[in-house]
Structure formats: C-alpha cells, structure tokens
Nucleic acid binder design. Sequence first.
DNA 1: CCTTCAGGTTAACGACCGCTAACCTCCCTG
DNA 2: CAGGGAGGTTAGCGGTCGTTAACCTGAAGG
Lengths: 197, 197
Amino acid sequence: MATRTDAPTRREQILKEAARLFAERGFHGVGVDEIGAAVGISGPGLYRHFAGKDAMLAELLVGISEQLLRGAKRRLAEADGSSAADVLDSLIEGHIDFALDDRPLITLHDRELDRLRDSDRKLVRQLQRQYVELWVGVVREVYPTLTEPTARSAVHSVFGLLNSTPHLGRPGALPGRGVTAVLLHRMARGAFGAAGE
Amino acid sequence: MATRTDAPTRREQILKEAARLFAERGFHGVGVDEIGAAVGISGPGLYRHFAGKDAMLAELLVGISEQLLRGAKRRLAEADGSSAADVLDSLIEGHIDFALDDRPLITLHDRELDRLRDSDRKLVRQLQRQYVELWVGVVREVYPTLTEPTARSAVHSVFGLLNSTPHLGRPGALPGRGVTAVLLHRMARGAFGAAGE
DNA sequence: CCTTCAGGTTAACGACCGCTAACCTCCCTG
DNA sequence: CAGGGAGGTTAGCGGTCGTTAACCTGAAGG
C-alpha cells in the first residue's frame, strides 16, 4: 500500500474540515459558509467540488463505513492461520486506531446517520451491519457460550466503549496515545471476557 | 419517595416529547412546530410554558445531570458500611437503569451539550464532572493500582459502554430488559477489572 | 354576572441558510 | 497567442425557523 506523501486535494481538505465541524456542532448546526471559511474559500465555492451539503455528509459516512469494513476484512484474511483470539485482538486494535486517529469521524458515524438520503442511509447501514456481523462471528468463536443476540449486544457495547475516546478530553490531555490504546484494548477484552463467562 | 400517580403536567409532556425528538433528529433538526404537534398544540403555544427552544434543552440537560448525580450520592450514602466493590456495583446498577429507562436523555446528555448558553453549559459540565469524580473515587478504592488519570479514562469508557443502549436496536428488540441489564453490568465490571489488572 | 387569567389560536416578521446565477481570473494547451 | 475550463467571487432568491403580537375562549372566584 503506497503511503501518501503528496498534498491533500481541495476535496479532501473540505471533507476533513466538514467532518470536524459536523462533529463539533452537528450537521444542521454548521453552515456552508463556515465550511468554506475553514478551507479559505467562501460558501458557494464549495459547490465546485460537491453537489451540496448533503453530499459531503454522505461521502464522509459511506467512506468511514467502507474503511472500517475493508480494514476488518483485511485483518480477518491476513490472520488466517492464527487463533480466533488473535483475530479478535487484531480487530480491536484496528478499531482503536480508527477511534484515536479519526475522532470526528467516529462521532459522526453514529450521530448523523439519519440526515442521509434514503439510498445512502441504506448503504451505510448495510456496511455497518456487515462490520458488526464480522465481529460477532469472531467473538462467538472465542466465546462459544455466547448466543448470537448476546454476542451482538456485547459487540455494540464494546463499540460504545472504544468510541468513547472523544469524551476523554482534548487531544493532548490524554495519558498518551499508546497508553490509552493499551488501556482501551484491555478493557475491551475484559468486557468480552465477562460477557462470555 | 412518593411514587407519582397523578397525570403528567403539560410541561412534563412537552419535555418528554422534546427529548425524544431532539434525540432522534438533533436539536437543530427539530422545529418548535413539531414539538407542539407532538403534544397536541401548535408551535407558538409552547411559549406559554417555556421561554424558548433553548430553555427546553437546558432544562432537560440540567435535569439529567442533577438526577444522575443525586442518585449516585444517595447510593454512596446508603451503602455506607458496604465494601467499595458493592458501592461500585450499586453505581453501575443505577447508571444502567437510567440508560435503559431514559434512552433519549442518555443520547442528549453527551450530544447536545454545546447548544447551551454559557452559564447552563458550565452548570451541566460541573454536575457531570462531579458525577465522574464520584465514580473515580470508588473505582480507585476497588482497584488501588489505578492512577487517577487512568481511572478517569476507564470511567469515561465504561460510560460509553453503558450508554450504548440506544444502539442495541429498537426498544422491544432487546433480549429482554433484565437480561440486557445483567449483561451490561458484567461487562462493565469486566472492563474495570481488566483496567485495574 | 362580570372579571380575570391560564392556555390556547393564527398571522406575520426578521434572520438565516442552502443553493443558483452571473461574472471574473488564472493557467494550461493546441 | 487565442481560448477554454477549473475554481473562485458576490448578489440574491426562496424557503424555513424561532419568536412575537394580537386575539380568542372557557372555567374559576368574588
């Protein structure tokens, strides 16, 4: 995978700032003029890059869901010979990386879904469900006593735990990224373990 | 404590419906006309009961924060002779009850705080912080190896876990309220346990 | 029986917001 | 060196939203 070193395109700048603003004040709470100002152009200039405000949100949410699912599938495929427990650790690690590195997106992901057009919302929900079911399968392999509904509830709850990073204080105030990642990982495993007896 | 049997006042009806709507579509996504319609009166009629839309949100958020803190203090006082572990279980139980019974409020609680007037926001934040610090104290008593910042992170994460109930499917789809409460409780204890080694 | 007032109603105002129209200005390319 | 498209600009339209104003009504109280 070629790591990007080139400058971000204007579209990417806009998406990044829009994500931050949407997460801070909600989709309806942010005006197009503000998004424009955040990237140094003025309101209507955005329409050279996006069909509308809705399109920005849609692209953000679809992108997040795809990225999460793609990463999980890759981890599942890569760790083919490993134990189920190792795969679960890999999934947790991937989700934590995402939660710590893209906090605004994590916030949007479960907050602004209802603002999407029907077709986009369906797509996002489908991707999210696939992601959840992938976790459920691995979790049930590690803890075979769990019924499927219980495992699904447990997975959602652990997502709540991992996605709590936006509430852990401003970016710099954490005990350090690595320390936080380890703590979250241990707590997630502990939570699953307690769910599975 | 006298259990209420009398009919809810109009103010209470309004607050309840406003909470539901705000949680569903966000503060800015709901119009006063909709809130009015939800209680059978029309938009401007609300102004006989509240100074404005902001005032409804403020009353909701302050009310939630006060209720959570009051409940926690009561539990701490009641279980005076008990072990720290029992107190922690009581706190977890109280938070779960709240999360399961007032799902819209839980959603609002950490989502719409920034829409408040400065003074209200300060008040809510102060109440929230007191609630967190109360938990941190108990958690550190149960797990003395935890540093204060780590314990605080752990508490926030467990809140994320417990507050995930809105994502667990529509009200009836859960495996049953009691079962869910027990599962959440075990996972919360498991997460704290893993954090404290 | 008249008054008062709580709790509604509809009409309308002013602000804001998403979006379009019309226009401008580089820079690349044949 | 034309010219054309990419990527901006400002002005302004249409709709929505929170709020206020003015008015109505039914029930309680002296």
